[in-house]
């Protein structure tokens, strides 16, 4: 910064002036967003950081207790441990499965067949409403004891399974729901596929490479920037998963789908323990930040940029 300003002095003072002016204009133009960020995001975040250090029942005033909430969370909160366990399992399975599925569908939709744009629209459509309560409610009915899935299964001779209300299958049901919401990742993969130069494929097939080999040696490496992007976005989203668990399973049975965001919500808006909930929120923020940082750090090893 310092070096740059001395350089500016050397060349001409007029240049410096106009660059400040330009900055000032920039800030004016982004002021609606900037004010939003400061007032609606940054300020509440700082507030919640302070509140996380207090005991604050919503009906009373906060009283400062230092790191008391954090100590309780890490030392004796079994529900915290359980919700963290559920969330990790969810992220660990739903993200890779969803990306693999999204890539598979993207490859299919990359083919040039007549009416392909229609197919693309049809496959993307569910994602527009994917995170909604309505889809979650439909999922609940599909996988219910008298739902479509069980009806179909019993037609081919299987005994019905109570997918949603058995602890052994409830989380898998939610993971399946998340995999099914592959649309946004799929679209990004599709865009990535279109950017891969066709001559690479031609050269490879002339050299006698098989389809699998082409996929692993050309398609996948050239898609890695898209994979990184999707991986990070989906990881962040999955850590914050709420709607599906809230609507489909309510976190049950026996907390088998009690994801972190649901626990946070319950503490904050059912029991009104805002100080504790704020501490939970900051822990989640740090967990997500660490995961994102690790993904970025390892990306140097496996992400290939063309130049």
């Amino acid at each position: 910064m310092k070096a740059r300003s001395t350089k500016g002095n050397q060349s001409s003072s007029g240049f410096k002036l106009s660059s400040i002016k330009e900055g000032y204009w920039g800030y004016i133009f982004i002021s609606p967003w900037l004010i939003g960020l400061l007032v609606l995001t940054l300020w509440p975040m700082l507030q919640s950081l302070y509140l996380s250090l207090t005991q604050f029942h919503l009906l009373e005033s906060p009283s400062f207790i230092g790191l008391g909430n954090y100590e309780e969370i890490f030392n004796s909160d079994k529900t915290f441990a359980q919700s963290l366990r559920v969330t990790f399992i969810y992220v660990l399975f739903s993200v890779p499965l969803k990306l693999a599925f999204a890539l598979l569908v993207a490859m299919l939709l990359y083919q040039s067949i007549r009416g392909m744009s229609l197919f693309r629209a049809i496959f993307y459509l569910p994602s527009l409403i994917g995170g909604s309560v309505a889809i979650a409610a439909i999922w609940r009915n599909l996988f219910g004891l008298d739902g479509m899935i069980n009806k179909t299964l019993s037609l081919i001779g299987f005994t019905p399974v109570d997918w949603i209300n058995m602890p052994s299958t409830s989380l898998s049901t939610l993971i399946a729901l998340s995999v099914w919401q592959f649309g946004s990742a799929m679209v990004i993969f599709l865009a990535g596929l279109k950017q891969i130069p066709k001559d690479l494929y031609e050269a490879a097939s002339v050299d006698g490479a098989g389809k699998l080999r082409i996929f692993f040696k050309i398609t996948l490496p050239l898609l890695t920037p898209m994979i990184l992007f999707n991986l990070i976005m989906q990881t962040i989203n999955s850590f914050q998963m709420f709607t599906q668990a809230f609507v489909v399973t309510k976190g049950g049975p026996i907390h088998s789908t009690f994801v972190y965001a649901l626990y946070l919500y319950e503490k904050a808006f059912v029991f009104f323990d805002m100080g504790y909930a704020s501490a939970l929120a900051w822990i989640l923020l740090i967990i997500i930040a660490v995961f994102t940082a690790v993904l970025f750090a390892t990306s140097k090893r496996w992400v290939h940029y063309e130049n």
């Binding site: 009915n141 219910g144 004891l145 109570d162 949603i164 209300n165 058995m166 309510k250 049950g252 049975p253």
Partner: peptide
């Protein structure tokens, strides 16, 4: 059984489904 109970909780929500 436990799964049928879990499906109906919370009590008295009077939701026919």
């Amino acid at each position: 059984p436990a799964n049928v109970t879990a499906a109906a909780l919370p009590l008295s929500n009077a939701d026919p489904n």
